[in-house]
């Protein structure tokens, strides 16, 4: 299948510092959940920013199967990045508002997105009135309201407690099966990457080279049993070893 987007020899450097990314080759296939796993500073967030067009590569090329894909993608940041003076509805309305859609015209789509993340009853709440998990759900609804074919997520659950993170992992998979979008997910959590992904790409600490690519059976049911089963622990061990190698230590 033709990839949605391909990175070829992509390099990114900031000023005269050593490059964050040195010749990264990566394909994102339609419908998959691809996780970029790696230690801090390995360039995984930078890769997402390059895909989103928030930064330009210093070298190499990014090929899109359809250039409209990049314009319509969804992005979930590390922090919820909600506008504190807007209520939940208005925050989710924002991307459509910036595209020129009035509140009334956008209402059905905003409400649909809010229903997807279970925040319909909180549409008039302000961000400060929401828990950390609810804020992140609101950010996800905002990313989904434009109905993106590709969703980029930059360690969205890293700041949440484990119970909430598990819950949001489950919810994300449910959203994925409802909406079918492709997801590129950045994390430094081995467990999260194994639970969510169809494919895990482990990036090296220095220069973001691909240390290993781990395939996960996309049809395996992802439920509480999966988290406790032998497949999950085998894959976790495998990914942990790759992560150690990525950090330059002997596995």
């Amino acid at each position: 299948m033709k990839p949605l987007v391909s990175l070829r020899g992509v390099e990114k450097r900031f000023g005269s510092n050593p490059p964050v990314l040195r010749a990264l080759d990566l394909d994102v296939h339609p419908g998959e959940i691809l996780t970029l796993l790696g230690p801090s500073g390995c360039g995984k967030s930078t890769t997402l920013r390059l895909l989103a067009g928030l930064a330009a590569p210093s070298g190499g090329a990014i090929h899109w199967a359809d250039p409209a894909l990049q314009k319509g993608l969804g992005y979930v940041f590390q922090d919820p990045t909600l506008l504190p003076w807007r209520d939940v509805f208005s925050n989710v309305h924002l991307p459509l508002q910036l595209a020129g859609l009035s509140r009334e015209a956008a209402a059905p789509r905003v409400e649909e997105a809010l229903a997807l993340v279970g925040l319909l009853n909180f549409r008039q709440s302000l961000p400060r009135e929401l828990s950390g998990g609810m804020k992140m759900r609101c950010a996800i609804a905002r990313a989904l309201v434009t109905r993106p074919a590709l969703l980029l997520m930059d360690e969205p659950f890293a700041a949440l407690d484990e119970v909430t993170r598990f819950k949001l992992n489950d919810e994300l998979l449910a959203l994925k099966s409802t909406l079918g979008m492709t997801i590129v997910f950045v994390t430094h959590s081995v467990a999260e990457s194994v639970f969510l992904s169809h494919r895990i790409v482990v990036l090296a600490a220095d220069g973001g080279e691909i240390v290993e690519e781990i395939q996960v059976n996309p049809r395996a049911p992802r439920d509480a049993e999966y988290r406790l089963g032998p497949t999950f622990s085998d894959l976790s061990r495998h990914a942990s070893k790759a992560l150690l190698r990525a950090m330059g230590e002997k596995a």
């Binding site: 920013r49 989103a52 928030l54 314009k71 940041f77 990045t81 924002l94 991307p95 910036l98």
Partner: peptide, 21 residues
């Protein structure tokens, strides 16, 4: 907040909308 500016960049907000919103 820089992340909010990124958000507005992502949705290609015009300078005017960036100002008022």
């Amino acid at each position: 907040d820089h992340a909010l500016l990124d958000l507005f960049d992502l949705y290609r907000a015009s300078a005017w909308r960036r100002l008022i919103y």
